[in-house]
Simulated scan of single mutants.
Amino acid sequence: MSTNTRVMHATPEQVWEVLADGWLYPLWVVGASRMREVDEDWPAVGSRIHHSVGAWPLLIDDHTEVLDATPGAMLKLKAKAWPTGAAEVTLHLRARGAETEVVIEEQAVDGPAALLPKPLQDPPLRWRNVEALRRLAYVCERRP
Rank of each mutant, 00 (worst) to 15 (best):
D62W: 14
M74C: 08
L67N: 07
T64P: 07
V66R: 13
G72V: 01
L77D: 04
E101G: 02
H63N: 13
A81K: 04
H63A: 15
A79Q: 10
T90S: 05
L75R: 06
V66S: 13
P83D: 00
E101M: 09
E65G: 05
T84K: 12
T90L: 08
K80V: 06
P71T: 03
D68T: 03
T90R: 12
A81C: 01
D68W: 07
A79G: 06
T70W: 06
T84V: 15
V102T: 01
E101K: 02
D62G: 11
M74E: 06
E65V: 15
E105Q: 11
L91N: 02
A86N: 07
T84A: 15
P83C: 05
E105M: 11
D62F: 12
H63M: 13
A69L: 12
L67S: 08
G97L: 13
R94T: 11
E101H: 02
V103C: 02
G85C: 11
R96W: 07
L75Y: 05
L77H: 03
E106Q: 09
H92D: 09
A73P: 00
A95S: 12
A87E: 03
E65K: 13
L77K: 03
A69F: 12
A79I: 03
G97A: 14
L75V: 03
A79Y: 00
D62A: 12
T84M: 14
T70E: 15
G72F: 02
E101V: 01
L75W: 06
T100H: 05
I104A: 09
H92M: 07
K80C: 10
K76Y: 00
V89S: 03
E88F: 09
P83L: 05
L93G: 02
L67D: 04
A73E: 14
G85W: 09
P71S: 05
K78V: 06
K78S: 00
E105S: 10
M74R: 15
E99Q: 15
K78R: 15
G97P: 12
E106L: 02
A86G: 08
D62K: 08
K76F: 00
E88S: 03
T70N: 08
A98I: 13
A86L: 14
M74Y: 04
E105N: 04
L91Q: 06
R96C: 08
I104T: 04
G72M: 02
D62S: 15
D68A: 15
L91S: 07
D68G: 10
L67R: 14
A79R: 05
V66K: 14
G97I: 13
A69K: 09
H63W: 15
T64M: 14
E99C: 11
A79E: 14
A98K: 15
A73K: 13
R96Q: 15
K80A: 09
V89G: 06
A86C: 09
G72N: 01
A87H: 01
E99G: 02
W82E: 06
E106N: 03
V66G: 12
L77W: 02
T84N: 09
T90C: 08
E99Y: 07
H63C: 15
T90V: 09
A95T: 00
V66E: 11
L77Y: 07
A73F: 01
T84I: 14
A95P: 06
A73Q: 13
L75I: 06
V102F: 01
E88V: 14
V66L: 14
T84Q: 10
V89T: 07
G72T: 02
L93F: 07
D68V: 04
M74I: 00
